[in-house]
């Protein structure tokens, strides 16, 4: 067993190493998130604020194709609120009995409305750069939550030796430091209803939490279940070890 744990730890160390190889940029600051650790949970108020930031800022360019309005129930919205949020959007449906496509208000079962009709339109509207879908963004980047938070707060004046073309911006935490997204956040750009400070830092933290939830909606249930499974296995393993000892007692 000793050997096994040793091997495992060697493995974990050696495996951890290649994960760092991907980016050349400065690693983003490590934040304290309510959802980290084996007992971590999402902060519902932060999720709702984060959704507000997504809705009013990010959603202008970024799709979230894997989310439906009904999923917002997990943020603490009730059925009527979700219906009202969905109804703010108009989606195309059909064909109807006459074979025509028609527009109707979105329903909770609809996916989040994509700001662009297709990828080509998204690229055309953004200087040829495709704004990535945000449904999985925190899982699709190394150190996802800190990365997203870092990007949102990492905009700076470009140093003198860096030349930026139009539509390019300088970001500390972006690989290569050049990013095609204009700084999306500024103080006061979203009016929080719960009195939380409207600062870039606060917006970035809230929307990051929302995006982590979007990528891993099962996280709370997963960790809760995991604790139970581990506890069960520990007890069961202990009992089985005792049985093993008893059976083996006469073998030597």
């Amino acid at each position: 067993m000793k050997y096994f744990l040793l091997l495992l730890s060697v493995f974990v160390i050696t495996h951890g190493a290649p994960a760092l190889a991907a980016g050349d940029a400065e690693p983003p600051p490590e934040m304290h998130w309510s959802f980290s650790g084996p007992f971590g949970t999402y902060d519902r108020a932060a999720l709702q604020r984060g959704f507000q930031v997504y809705k009013q800022v990010c959603a202008a360019c970024h799709s979230m194709d894997l989310k439906s309005y009904r999923n917002l129930a997990a943020l603490g919205y009730n059925e009527d609120e979700i219906k009202a949020i969905a109804a703010e959007y108009t989606v195309e449906d059909g064909p109807n009995d006459e074979g025509e496509m028609f527009e109707r208000p979105a329903r909770p079962s609809d996916r989040f409305k994509n700001p662009y009709p297709n990828d080509a339109a998204a690229k055309y509207a953004n200087n040829g750069a495709m704004p990535p879908d945000l449904s999985l963004i925190t899982k699709a980047r190394h150190n996802g939550a800190n990365y997203v938070h870092g990007i949102l707060t990492g905009y700076e004046e470009a140093p003198a030796d860096t030349e930026l073309m139009s539509g390019q911006y300088y970001n500390r935490y972006m690989a290569g430091h050049v990013i095609a997204m204009a700084p999306p956040l500024s103080d006061g750009v979203v009016g929080y209803e719960d009195g939380t400070d409207g600062t870039v830092e606060q917006y970035a933290k809230d929307v990051t939490q929302f995006l982590v939830w979007a990528a891993e909606p099962e996280m709370e249930e997963r960790k809760r279940t995991g604790i139970k499974v581990i506890l069960f296995l520990l007890v069961f393993t202990g009992i089985m070890y005792a049985v093993k000892r008893k059976i083996w007692a006469d073998a030597h």
Binding site: R222, K223, G226, I230, T237, M240, Y241
Partner: peptide, 21 residues
């Protein structure tokens, strides 16, 4: 059978820790 059961369970604990956390 008993020694394997114990070994399997220890291995599963580590596996489960990765799977859930």
């Amino acid at each position: 059978t008993m020694k394997d059961t114990f070994g399997i369970l220890v291995f599963l604990i580590i596996y489960v820790a990765f799977t859930f956390f």
